[in-house]
Structure formats: structure tokens, C-alpha cells
């Protein structure tokens, strides 16, 4: 997949504002960004659910919209919001979607049963969609996206609003799919999710890609190794050499490559609501997209 100067404008809103990226086969790429950064719009451009305003995009070497059928035959999409067919039960949902995807009745039934089993939903096969929990709905959506064995799986915030058990189950499933050779595009604003699954992350803000690279490299390149995070400090300790201090609202962050320095600082802090940890993707994300609200 290749995008060059790709843009999508809605009247005066530049949802996607000239992005360049490439995705290799069997790569898992995470698109990170605050709400409204243009992640969903970008995904919709990829599976031809929107017309681009400008730029170039090719998927499997084909052109979206013009070669929608050929592209989408190899694409599975897990949508952000539940759009399962509420007039059907879980098994029927998969069966009908499999027919849409072009499977024969026989293959459709077999795949539906296999994927329900894989997603631990077999006991719910006859349940209507309304009676399923949020986690079940999301697992069913993932099963639905896999019916036709797509080469490319697009997941738009696959675990937003789910409990940790379901999240970890879904992550395990996605890692298994990647092992089996699938290319995965993932949008999320959970940094942990991006760090767990992605070979590479693209950080988006206001329709642009502002940073890209493997999660650990990004952290290493742009931040010190350790962070001491504290809130509600009435008095900020005097700065020490080797420690960088940032303040936002009532929160203070101290960055350093030397853990002992921060440990010493931690011991001197009057508050116990402080955490000393490794710098993570969220720190990078906040550094580049800012701490203010974006909407």
C-alpha cells in the first residue's frame, strides 16, 4: 500500500491533509492520534468508502474507488461502531456477510462456524445482536471481517470501551493473524495497544502524519528512558543536572536517562501519588500532539 499527498476535505475541514506512507505485506501498522485526527477517514479512503480530494493512493497496486471490487475482495474491516445486522442472530450475521463477500453457502456456513468457535462465541450463535455484550459484539465484528480470508485487515479502534480481559484476548487473536501472514492496519488511541501490536506506528494529528517509526525507536529517539510523573505538587523540587522538568496543569513530569537520579527525586517528593516508570509511547504522543484538548 502506498499513499502520496493523500487528502480528504469535507467542505472546510481538512480531515486528511496530505499524508505519505507505505505499508509492506505482513506488516502491522498502528495509526495513533487524538479524536478527529483523521484516522477513520484515512481507513475509509483505503477501503473505498470515500472519494479522495487529492493525492495518490494504491492498495495491492490497485486504485481505490476505480478498482473497489478487486481491492475489497482482499480486505476485511472491523468498524469502530457496531454495525452488525440487528435483524439477524450471530450465526446468521456471519452467514449473510459471507454471502456478501462472495462465499458459497457451504463455505459460508463452515467459515462462520469456525470463526465463532475461534472467537469463543459458539454458545452465542443463536443469540440476537442486542443480547450480546460489548466484548462479544467486537469479537463478532472481528470474526465477520475474517470470513473471506482477507489479506489486509483494517481495524478501527478495535478495543475502545472494552474491559482488559477482552482487550488482551483480542490482542492475542490479532498477533495470531499476523503470524499467519496477514497485513494489519490499526487505528487506536490506546498507546499500549499500538505498542503491543504494531511493527510501526504513525502518529497523526489534524489530518497529518507528524511522526512515524517502530514504537520503541520513537520512544528512544524523542525521550529520555525514564519518567517520574507526579501530580498535585505544591512545591517543585529544584532542577538537578540530568533531569528535565515539564509542567502541565497540576501535573509534573521529570525525564532522565539515569534511573537513580529520578529515584532520588522520588524519595524526596512530599507526595506519594507519584510514579517512576519507563517512558512510553503515550509520552511521545503527548509530547508531539500537545496536552490540550483537540476538539
Amino acid at each position: 500500500m502506498l499513499a502520496r499527498g493523500l487528502a480528504k476535505h469535507f467542505r472546510d475541514v481538512r480531515a486528511v491533509d496530505g499524508v505519505d506512507f507505505a505499508v509492506a505485506p505482513n506488516e502491522c501498522v498502528g495509526f495513533l492520534g487524538p479524536n478527529g485526527a483523521g484516522k477513520t477517514t484515512l481507513m475509509r479512503l483505503i477501503y473505498s468508502a470515500l472519494r479522495k480530494t487529492a493525492g495518490e493512493l494504491s492498495v495491492f497496486g490497485l486504485t481505490p474507488m476505480q478498482q473497489r471490487k478487486q481491492i475489497n475482495a482482499g480486505v476485511g474491516v472491523v468498524f469502530q461502531e457496531n454495525n452488525l445486522d440487528e435483524d439477524l442472530n450471530a450465526a446468521e450475521c456471519l452467514l449473510i456477510h459471507a454471502l456478501y463477500c462472495g462465499l458459497s453457502f457451504r463455505t459460508a456456513r463452515r467459515r462462520a462456524a469456525e470463526l465463532l468457535e475461534w472467537m469463543a462465541l459458539s454458545p452465542k450463535a443463536r443469540s440476537t445482536i442486542r443480547t450480546l455484550s460489548g466484548g462479544m459484539v467486537r469479537r463478532l465484528m472481528i470474526a465477520r471481517a475474517l470470513l473471506h480470508s482477507p489479506r489486509l485487515l483494517i481495524l478501527d479502534e478495535p478495543t475502545t470501551g472494552l474491559d482488559p480481559q477482552v482487550r488482551h484476548t483480542i490482542w492475542a487473536a490479532l498477533r495470531e493473524l499476523k503470524r499467519q501472514g496477514m497485513t494489519i492496519l490499526l487505528t487506536t488511541h490506546y498507546m499500549e495497544e499500538a505498542q503491543q501490536l504494531s511493527d510501526r506506528v504513525l502518529i497523526m494529528d489534524r489530518g497529518r502524519i507528524i511522526l512515524s517509526g517502530p514504537p520503541n525507536e520513537l520512544i528512544g529517539q524523542h525521550l529520555e528512558r525514564y519518567v517520574l510523573q507526579a501530580s498535585g505538587l505544591t512545591e517543585v523540587p529544584a532542577a538537578t543536572d540530568g533531569i528535565r522538568h515539564e509542567r502541565a496543569g497540576d501535573a509534573d513530569c521529570f525525564y532522565s536517562n539515569a534511573e537513580p537520579l529520578l529515584q532520588a527525586l522520588y524519595d524526596r517528593l512530599p507526595t506519594r501519588s507519584a510514579v517512576l516508570r519507563h517512558a512510553n509511547l503515550e509520552d511521545v504522543f503527548l509530547k508531539f500532539t500537545g496536552r490540550g484538548l483537540h476538539e
Binding site: E114, W118, T169, E176, Q180
Partner: peptide, 18 residues
């Protein structure tokens, strides 16, 4: 998650599409 029910590799094996 019952991963034994689908043999490895089967999930992504290409299927004939109409």
C-alpha cells in the same frame, strides 16, 4: 479463546470468492 479448533494457517488460507 479456543485456538485449537482452527488449524494454524487455516484462518488466512485463501478462499474461492464469487
Amino acid at each position: 479463546m479456543n485456538e485449537s479448533s482452527v488449524p494454524p494457517g487455516e484462518l488466512c488460507a485463501p478462499l474461492p470468492l464469487r
